[in-house]
């Protein structure tokens, strides 16, 4: 596959990863994710509703693991212990599948990650054979520590989860990108297509988002927009942008041969 995204030894054609929450219904979930072209989709793990109608459709029927790489996450966990238990359950749920998204929150209002707990959970999960993609703050030292622990991808936030504020600190992100030897994906904060394109133009290996698609007026159309933005940003990064020349404007048209001039 040309220019694929390689995570834990497996190659993916799409560099856009999407969440599955906040859609109106499963049909909208399915259509928006199809339009996004995403191959890796993240899901939450929750207690089953006892007494629930057993015939009710389930998310994994709408997004079958035979078609998508299901990335179970620990959204809503506030301790390393909760996160590790959740992912052990997820691995059992998904027949031994070990690629997971670790996220340990530190604060219910901002959903900022609790990095000491995240590091502790990552250490345990790697030791237990999980392939850990980790949501983290955009601190380059912590990102490096997560990589050294054996995480297969680091996923710094662009801005707060669900905020749609875009990339608030491209400079930190750049430092992480310059040094990382594992894929770096922006996770959280993308609001619209240009944010995704900027992330890719900075050199990110991929982008993970949920709300930007699910809460667009037309989620299916936004799914497609994000697919194109990630592709465009990646192409621009590979092409290598022109140098910025703030004080030396240079016309693109010939300066000779203008009409009305005396020779």
């Amino acid at each position: 596959m040309e220019d694929g995204l390689v995570i834990a030894g497996r190659t993916y054609g799409s560099r856009l990863l999407v969440g599955t929450g906040k859609y109106r219904d499963f049909d909208e979930t399915r259509r928006a994710i199809e339009a996004s072209g995403a191959e890796i989709v993240t899901v939450a793990i929750r207690r089953v509703n006892i007494g629930q109608n057993p015939g009710e459709p389930s998310l994994l029927e709408v997004l079958p693991p035979s078609r998508y790489t299901i990335l179970p996450n620990t959204a809503g966990c506030y301790t390393a212990e909760e996160a590790v238990r959740t992912l052990r359950l997820a691995r059992e749920l998904l027949d031994g599948h070990s690629l997971v998204k670790l996220e340990v929150l530190g604060d219910a209002e901002t959903l900022f990650p609790n990095m000491p707990e995240t590091l502790a959970a990552a250490r345990t999960l790697v030791a237990e054979g999980f392939q850990v993609m980790v949501y983290c703050s955009d601190d380059p030292i912590l990102a490096r520590q997560l990589e050294e622990l054996g995480c297969v991808a680091v996923m710094p936030l662009a801005s707060l989860i669900g905020s749609g504020m875009g990339i608030l600190n491209p400079w930190n992100l750049q430092i992480i990108l310059d040094r990382a030897r594992v894929p770096v994906l922006v996770d959280a904060g993308i609001g619209t297509a240009s944010d995704a394109a900027v992330a890719m133009e900075l050199g990110c290996d991929g982008v993970l988002m949920n709300t930007a698609i699910a809460k667009a007026r037309d989620p299916v159309r936004m799914g497609r927009a994000m697919k194109l933005a990630v592709q465009a940003g990646r192409e621009a990064w590979l092409a290598g942008r022109m140098a910025k020349k703030p004080y030396s404007a240079a016309p693109s048209s010939p300066t000779e041969g203008l009409i009305g001039k005396t020779a």
Partner: peptide, 10 residues
């Protein structure tokens, strides 16, 4: 006992 399923989430 904890009995869990996969649900929509990000």
């Amino acid at each position: 006992l904890e009995v869990v399923v996969a649900v929509g989430g990000g």
